[in-house]
Simulated assay, not measured.
Amino acid sequence: MAVAFTFPGQGSQTVGMGKDLADAFPEAAAVFAEVDEALGEKLSDIIWTGPEDQLTLTANAQPALMAVSIAALRVMQARGLDLKSKVAYVAGHSLGEYSALCAAGTFTLSDTARLLRIRGNAMQAAVPAGEGAMAAIIGLDHADVEAVCVEASPLGACQIANDNGGGQLVISGLKPAVEQAASLASQKGAKRALLLPVSAPFHSTLMAPAAEAMREALASVPRQDPVVPLVANVRAAPVTSAETIVDLLVEQVTGQVRWRETVSWFAQNDVTTLYEIGAGKVLTGLARRIDKNVTGTAVNTPADIEAVLAALA
């Protein structure tokens, strides 16, 4: 039975995250210092003391969450964890895919921080504020949600952005179309159809300018093949080529995060233990709902790290 490391996405951030790791472990403190230097500002101050509205900004939340994930990983590595021999795959939810790739050695920590700052700014700038929207649809299957998106599309772009599993899908696009699709989903029997408090319509075709910005940014960044395969968001299948991964990261900006299929792929390929490295426990909760044969464990405190090292010894 194999192990995978997963890395959380936007929404898992909380003020103060990672502070206990930085206080307890010099390897973790060094990660935050390197991210600060790469960005030319004290992002760590915002991570640890807020204010929350500054941490929540896409351009801050994305590198911040990555920093917390890599801080936890570096602590484990300093205590003897060898990723290649102990972990079969890595995967991350949206921005978490960059954390996974940093963990697997495809990008350096400094380059990953800069890429995520570019990504956050580009995604925010792609659509004027108030024109886009996202909505969570609970209790309908993928085909029904796809159908309501198509039905609402005369009002503008509307598509599935995240298939999170456990009956939760997120749609994204122009606000009138998303509102119409959410209404149609309720009429079709969705348990909930809720507009989300997000600043832009992520993972939709409206993010095309951000995809081009990432194509340009990624073109100039050194990359290595990951030391363990990445199960990519847009494929829900493992990838080992750095060049292919870069193409998929561009595709991911406008494409669907296929998380339900990712966890199902793990289950079908004897990966029964998922360790969620970094802030929160969103992916851990989703894993249980997607496949009962998969065990998720959140790893974000010194005690969590000790438990994982013991389990993987």
Rank of each mutant, 00 (worst) to 15 (best):
V145Y: 00
H142V: 12
E151T: 14
G96T: 07
K188I: 08
L184E: 03
L140P: 02
A129S: 15
L109S: 07
S110M: 07
E146G: 12
G165V: 09
I160M: 01
A100W: 05
S85T: 15
V150I: 13
L83W: 08
R114E: 13
I138L: 15
A161P: 09
T112E: 04
A91S: 15
K191Y: 10
V90W: 06
L194I: 15
L115C: 03
D141P: 14
F107Y: 13
L83A: 08
A177G: 04
Y98W: 13
G167W: 02
G167D: 03
A190L: 10
D144K: 15
S110E: 13
I171N: 02
E131C: 13
L101V: 08
K86A: 15
S99F: 02
Q159N: 09
L116Q: 04
M123Q: 00
A104Q: 04
N164W: 02
G156T: 08
N162W: 05
G132D: 06
K86G: 10
G189M: 12
Q168D: 09
V170L: 09
E97C: 06
Y89G: 03
E146S: 15
V90S: 01
Q187H: 14
V198N: 07
A126R: 00
A182C: 06
I137K: 13
L169C: 12
K84Q: 15
N162V: 03
G130C: 11
S85V: 05
A185G: 01
L196A: 08
G167Y: 07
R192D: 06
L115P: 00
S85Q: 13
R192P: 05
V90N: 07
A88V: 06
V127N: 01
Q124M: 13
D163M: 11
V127Y: 04
S153L: 06
A157R: 14
M134N: 02
G156S: 10
I137T: 00
S172I: 00
A104T: 05
N162C: 10
Q180K: 15
N162M: 09
G165T: 05
V127E: 01
G189C: 12
V90I: 04
V178C: 05
K86F: 13
G139T: 10
A135T: 01
L195N: 03
R114N: 12
S172H: 03
S153H: 12
G96W: 03
V127F: 07
